[in-house]
C-alpha cells in the first residue's frame, strides 16, 4: 500500500492544476476559437490578449494600483503590529486577553457587513478612490493577522535574550531594532507575506472604495465580464497574470506557510 501512496498527492495536484490549465490555455486563444469550437490546446496561438493588457492603461494600471495599495498595506500592518505583538508576548497588562480576542474578531468580520459603512466613512474623510483608502481598509483584517503571527514567532524567542541585552547596556529601542528584529526576521517575512496575500486576494472592499484612480485589477476584470460583451480570452489573460505574483512569492515562504495559516501557532 505504501508504494502507491504517491498517487494520492499526484491526483490531487492534477485536480488543482486542471482549472488553472484551462484558464492559461484560454488566454492564448482568440475569442472566435473560444466560442466557436472546443479544443484542448490553443489552435490559433495568439498573444493578442496579453498585448492588449500591457498596452491599454485601463488594464495595466489595474495591476499598478493593486500593487501600490497592497504594498502600503503590508508596510503599515507589519510596522504597527511589531510593538503590539511584542507587548502581547512579553507583558501582562490591563485587559490584554480581551484586547487580543477583540483583534481576532476583526479578522473574522465579514466584509459584506462592512461594505456600505466603509463607503460612507471613506467618502466622509475624503479618502475615497485613493490607494491609501484601500490600504487602510485592509488593515482591518491584516493588522490582527500580523499581530497573531508575530506574537507566535516572538513567543518562541526566550526572554533571556531581552534580559542579556539590558545587562549589556542596550536601551530598549536599540535592543528592539538591533537585536530583536533580526532574531525574528523569518516571522516578519511570513507576516508580510500573509498581509500581501490577503490584501491581494480581497476584492469586495477594494472595489467598494475605488472608482477610477485606484481601481484594482480584479475589479477591472469584473467590469469586462459584464459590460463589453464577453471577451473571455482577455479575461483569462488578466486572470493568469493575477496568479503570477502569488506563484513567485510562495516559493520563498514554502516552509513557513502552514505556520502562517495557523496564525503562528503550529
Amino acid at each position: 500500500m505504501k508504494r502507491y501512496s504517491w498517487l494520492v498527492p499526484t491526483l490531487y495536484i492534477l485536480f488543482l492544476m486542471l482549472p488553472i490549465y484551462w484558464l492559461v490555455s484560454m488566454s492564448f486563444k482568440t475569442t472566435n476559437e473560444i466560442l466557436g469550437s472546443f479544443s484542448l490546446f490553443p489552435r490559433e496561438f495568439t498573444l493578442d490578449n496579453y498585448r492588449k493588457i500591457f498596452t491599454d492603461p485601463t488594464w495595466y494600471m489595474g495591476y499598478v494600483n493593486s500593487i501600490i495599495y497592497v504594498t502600503i498595506n503590508t508596510v503599515i500592518s507589519v510596522t504597527v503590529a511589531l510593538p503590539a505583538a511584542y507587548a502581547f508576548s512579553r507583558y501582562r497588562f490591563l485587559g490584554d486577553k480581551h484586547l487580543f480576542f477583540w483583534l481576532l474578531t476583526n479578522r473574522m468580520a465579514p466584509a459584506a457587513v462592512f461594505a456600505l459603512p466603509f463607503f460612507q466613512l471613506y467618502s466622509a474623510t475624503g479618502l475615497f478612490d485613493t490607494h491609501f483608502a484601500v490600504a487602510l481598509a485592509h488593515t482591518l483584517f491584516n493588522i490582527p493577522l500580523a499581530v497573531w503571527i508575530l506574537e507566535g514567532f516572538m513567543s518562541g524567542v526566550p526572554k533571556q535574550l531581552d534580559e542579556t541585552a539590558y545587562v549589556d547596556g542596550y536601551s530598549f529601542p536599540a535592543f528592539f531594532i538591533k537585536i530583536f528584529i533580526p532574531t525574528i526576521a523569518a516571522g516578519i517575512g511570513v507576516a508580510a507575506f500573509f498581509c500581501f496575500m490577503f490584501s491581494w486576494v480581497e476584492l469586495l472592499l477594494a472595489k467598494t472604495l475605488t472608482a477610477v484612480h485606484a481601481k484594482p485589477i480584479a475589479a477591472t476584470m469584473t467590469r469586462t465580464a459584464s459590460s463589453s460583451g464577453y471577451e473571455l480570452g482577455l479575461l483569462a489573460a488578466a486572470g493568469t497574470l493575477t496568479i503570477v505574483p502569488g506563484a513567485i512569492v510562495i516559493y520563498f515562504v514554502r516552509n513557513y506557510i502552514a505556520k502562517g495559516f495557523a496564525l503562528g501557532r503550529v
Binding site: M26, E202, G239, T242
Partner: peptide, 21 residues
C-alpha cells in the same frame, strides 16, 4: 508550492476560473 497555489489566487479570479472551466 503547487498545493498552495489556489490559496493565492484573487477570490474573484477563482470564481472566474471555475465559471469558464
Amino acid at each position: 508550492v503547487l498545493m498552495a497555489m489556489p490559496l493565492l489566487i484573487p477570490w474573484n479570479v477563482v470564481g472566474a476560473i471555475w465559471n469558464i472551466f
